[in-house]
Simulated scan of single mutants.
Amino acid sequence: MKKWLISCGIVCVLFATSLNTGHANSVSGSRIVQLAMTHHERYMYGSTDCSALTRKVYGSVGIRLPRTSRQQARVGKPVRISNLRAGDLVFFATGRRGVISHVGIYTGNGRMIDAEYSGVRQTGIFTGSTAHYWKSKYITARRIL
């Protein structure tokens, strides 16, 4: 009886894991961007900051991300700038040089959506008037989907 219960438990866990993974794989990067653009909260460290935004957006499709941008930079697969797609996470060092302290969601065309002190907004990171700031602080990107 005990072996049967353990076997059933393992099967249930594997089944639940496959359901969660299948759901995550069916989400597109453009859907992530759409969801991110629905957020208009005022910036508040810890609850509506940059990493909280990415957690909320990805969490809404069943993908759990760690709390901080530095922790989030360790999940998913690394992506080169030339291969960025909508929905990828992009990471920056806005404080100490080389230390990840900011994250945004790549929207395409050299832009990202992120939570800044001025609120959730879309901004140019490789093109446009704000590229001079973001491009120099870029560290890496990760693909979660």
Rank of each mutant, 00 (worst) to 15 (best):
Val79Trp: 04
Tyr58His: 05
Asp114Val: 01
Gly110Phe: 12
Arg97Leu: 11
Pro78Phe: 04
Gly87Asp: 03
Gly22Lys: 10
Val57Pro: 04
Thr107Gly: 07
Ser69Lys: 09
Arg97Ala: 14
Leu53Ala: 04
Tyr58Met: 02
Ser51Lys: 06
Ser18His: 11
Ile100Asn: 06
Arg67His: 13
Leu19Met: 15
Ser47Glu: 13
Thr107Leu: 04
Thr54Gln: 06
Ala115Val: 09
Ala52Ile: 01
Asp88Gly: 08
Phe92Gly: 09
Val27Trp: 02
Val13Pro: 03
Thr94Arg: 01
Ser47Lys: 09
Arg96Cys: 11
Thr107Gln: 06
Ile6Pro: 06
Glu41Asn: 06
Gly22Tyr: 09
Ala52Leu: 05
Asn83Pro: 05
Thr17Ala: 14
Val11Tyr: 11
Ile6Asn: 11
Thr48Ser: 09
Ser118Met: 04
Ala16Glu: 11
Ser69Ala: 15
Pro66Ala: 07
Asn20Leu: 12
Val61Arg: 00
Ala73Ser: 09
Leu19Tyr: 13
Gly59Asn: 07
Ile63Gly: 10
Ile63Asn: 06
Arg55Val: 07
Gly98Glu: 05
Thr48Arg: 07
Thr54Met: 03
Gln34His: 08
His39Leu: 01
Gly29Ile: 03
Leu35His: 07
Asp49Glu: 08
Leu19Asn: 11
Gly108Leu: 08
Ile32Gly: 00
Val11Ser: 14
Cys8Asn: 15
Arg70Ser: 13
Gly104Thr: 03
